[in-house]
Simulated scan of single mutants.
Amino acid sequence: MAGLMLAAAAHGAPSVYPTGVTRYDPQKAWNGYVVFSGADRKTRLIDMNGNEVRRWDYPGFPTVLLDPALAGGARGRVLVQLAATEKPHPLASPGNGLDNQAIGELDWDGKVVWRWGDAAPDGAARQHHDLRRLPNGNTLVLVNKPHPVAGFDVPVVIDDAVYEITPNGEIAWRWLASEHLEEFGFTAEQLALVRATKNPDYLHVNNLSVLGPNRWFDAGDARFHPDNLMIDARNANFIAIIAKASGKVVWRLGPGLPPIDPKAGQHVPRPVDQFVGQHDAHLIPAGLPGAGNLLVFDNQGAA
């Protein structure tokens, strides 16, 4: 028996792995705090050494730590998902928000000070991937709306929508992706493939950002108005700017990109010739290196 145990130990995988903060160089790191939602569906605020500063017993998708200027001066406010639907939608999955009943704002002590979702158009918030508090006190919410869309082969499309919600829970502005299919830059052949897809989550928009002040608008390009919104569609490989005033797509990168030049290698600058399954597209804010440039995470794959 002892021999068998020794053999297993010799050939088995390690049973101990590094946990917590494994490297922290204060001279190279931006020294602050990190807020994240864990697999246990709780939200934590930790310092750079991994010490838990605060815990909230709700998950975020993602959790948003509010600037006090956007929370009436209150510190430690977070936006999270408050409740799951009692009966999940048939198309619900961990990545599409269809099982989300309500979102809300918590104070530092975990008290719910604002909630939205029960009176949403579909009876549930169905928020996913992003939400933002605006300077006017309203909240931008990226949601999924399952419904039939004319021309699609699938009976129900998981449509991406953006709602601007007032503190009283009313929708002050709305945008629905399927109403702008002709503006996303698809060729006629590509658009036919989009409508024929067997995947109801045909775009899978995975981020929503507000442009904010930027050098392009300051130089006279109205497409980059600070109030305009940027989204990216993981499944369709494009990034787009939506004009807040009209809802129209006024700028985009993709879905059609120049062919990859094998001679270009990793040399920069060079034309953007590929991104796949991208996430978190946003303009670098004023005051930071590269301000006004587009920063995006390229997954280089479908996930």
Rank of each mutant, 00 (worst) to 15 (best):
V272D: 13
G137A: 09
N235A: 08
D280G: 12
D107Y: 04
A124P: 01
N49F: 01
G20S: 00
A303E: 13
N235Q: 10
H11K: 04
T43N: 08
N237E: 09
F238N: 01
T22P: 00
G76A: 06
A236K: 12
L181E: 14
L295F: 15
L208T: 11
N299R: 13
P226M: 08
H129G: 02
G73E: 04
I46H: 01
G185D: 05
S15K: 08
V210E: 06
A13C: 03
R252Q: 06
L140W: 15
W108N: 03
A172R: 14
V250A: 05
A7K: 11
F275T: 05
R23N: 05
G123F: 10
T63K: 01
I171N: 05
V149T: 05
N235V: 06
Q27D: 01
D280L: 11
Q101M: 15
Y58L: 03
I171F: 14
S93F: 10
A161F: 12
I260G: 06
R115L: 03
G97K: 05
V154E: 13
T166L: 04
D232L: 07
G72H: 12
P135A: 06
V34Q: 03
I239M: 13
A302F: 13
A119F: 07
A264G: 10
G3N: 02
Q278R: 10
Q266L: 15
D57K: 03
F217E: 06
G247N: 03
P121G: 03
I231K: 01
E164L: 10
I231T: 04
Y163N: 09
E170R: 13
L140E: 03
P285F: 15
R126A: 00
